Simulated assay, not measured.
Amino acid sequence: MIIGQDEAVGRFVAAWSSRTPHHAWLLAGPKGVGKARFAEAAALRVLAEAAGPVPEGAGLEVSPEHRIAHLFEAGSHPDYRRLERGMNKAGTGLARNISVAQVRELSHLFAVTPSLSDWRVIVIDSADDLEVSAANALLKMLEEPPVKTLFFLVTHAPGRLLPTIRSRCRRLDFAPLSEGDVARVLETALPKADGQERARLASLSGGSAGRAVAIAEHDLTPLAETARLLMRDGDPTNGKRAALAKSLSLKAAADRYAIFLSMLPGLVAQEARGAEGARRAALLAAYAEARRTAQLAPRLSSDPASTIYVLTGHLAAAARHG
């Protein structure tokens, strides 16, 4: 089930039902709102309908007992490909990009007829990760698409893609989820969490179920509370700021640092909604700085400790107007 994205699901289902859908779909929206899950569900539904028997219902659902669902579960469907970052050459982590070699591998798929039906599906998660030569290789495929082949391009930042790629895709926008929808996703993603914890995570998620899961996995709710206290009580001795900076600057804390930065703008925005006058102005300034830092700091490889220390100074400044 794709929670909270009924409009996107409905638009695709209507297009697929015509049996003349656009060959390439750009799935655009924030991280963690269901774009990749939609792409997989749509791919499974398309290939299950094409191969038969046709699944019940008019949406994207396919019974896990369907023969095509079994192939998907095993990762062995011959007419489906998913492109994502692989391991780096050292085998120590993910590569920085999806390589041109990965894209060119698709030519082998297109060189033969489909195996189980007359349709094929390609999912690229995410198109933002394509290296330049890979993006150009994909563009050639989109310009002259193979017959009865669907491309689903997941993107968190569509403006950074080649304009020529965007122009050859039909765009589906995925909006941030409501807190209620995030909590519903967490019922499955975090079954051991109680309702109160899921609600707390949803309030910190900024509409991203993926971020809520990451916040839970990296135990960031205590740090969120520290950030709230900075905005309300300040930090006369700078002790809270220093401790927060230290906890997020360790070499093993790179993921926690990135997730904390992505969480912070929403946290500041929540505080600003209930503020007035000079305090509200200070919080809005802190929000702008938090948002700018969240966008730039991970890409600039800036020092985490100094980044957090400076950023939380903007939070503590708001307390002076409390």
Rank of each mutant, 00 (worst) to 15 (best):
8 A>P: 01
10 G>M: 02
12 F>V: 00
14 A>I: 05
16 W>H: 14
16 W>S: 13
20 T>W: 03
21 P>L: 04
25 W>P: 09
25 W>H: 09
28 A>S: 14
28 A>M: 04
29 G>M: 12
33 V>G: 06
33 V>M: 08
33 V>E: 03
37 R>G: 11
38 F>E: 02
38 F>G: 01
38 F>K: 00
39 A>W: 04
41 A>M: 09
41 A>T: 00
45 R>D: 00
47 L>N: 02
52 G>M: 11
53 P>H: 12
53 P>R: 11
54 V>Y: 11
54 V>D: 12
54 V>S: 14
56 E>C: 10
57 G>D: 10
58 A>S: 15
64 P>V: 02
68 I>N: 04
68 I>L: 01
69 A>E: 03
74 A>W: 00
75 G>V: 08
77 H>F: 09
82 R>S: 12
84 E>P: 00
90 A>N: 02
92 T>P: 00
101 A>F: 03
101 A>D: 15
103 V>P: 12
106 L>E: 10
107 S>T: 14
109 L>I: 04
115 S>T: 14
115 S>R: 13
117 S>F: 08
120 R>P: 12
125 D>H: 13
132 V>D: 13
133 S>K: 11
133 S>T: 13
135 A>R: 05
135 A>Y: 09
138 L>E: 13
138 L>N: 10
140 K>P: 09
140 K>H: 10
147 V>K: 15
147 V>P: 10
147 V>I: 09
150 L>W: 05
153 L>Y: 11
161 L>S: 08
162 L>M: 12
165 I>Y: 05
167 S>W: 09
167 S>Y: 07
168 R>N: 07
171 R>P: 05
174 F>E: 08
178 S>L: 03
180 G>V: 06
180 G>L: 04
181 D>E: 15
182 V>P: 02
190 L>H: 06
190 L>I: 06
193 A>W: 00
195 G>W: 00
196 Q>I: 06
198 R>Q: 09
201 L>V: 06
201 L>R: 04
208 S>C: 11
224 A>F: 03
224 A>E: 03
226 T>F: 00
232 R>C: 04
232 R>Q: 15
235 D>P: 10
236 P>E: 12
239 G>C: 09
240 K>C: 07
240 K>T: 14
244 L>E: 09
245 A>Q: 11
246 K>M: 09
248 L>C: 07
252 A>P: 01
253 A>S: 14
256 R>W: 05
256 R>G: 11
259 I>D: 10
259 I>V: 15
263 M>I: 05
265 P>K: 08
266 G>N: 09
266 G>M: 06
267 L>M: 07
273 R>C: 08
277 G>P: 11
278 A>R: 15
280 R>G: 05
282 A>N: 04
286 A>C: 07
286 A>W: 02
290 A>P: 03
290 A>T: 03
292 R>K: 14
293 T>E: 01
299 R>D: 02
305 A>M: 07
305 A>L: 04
306 S>G: 04
306 S>L: 15
308 I>F: 02
309 Y>I: 06
310 V>H: 03
310 V>L: 13
312 T>R: 01
313 G>N: 03
319 A>S: 15
319 A>Y: 05
321 H>T: 08
322 G>E: 12
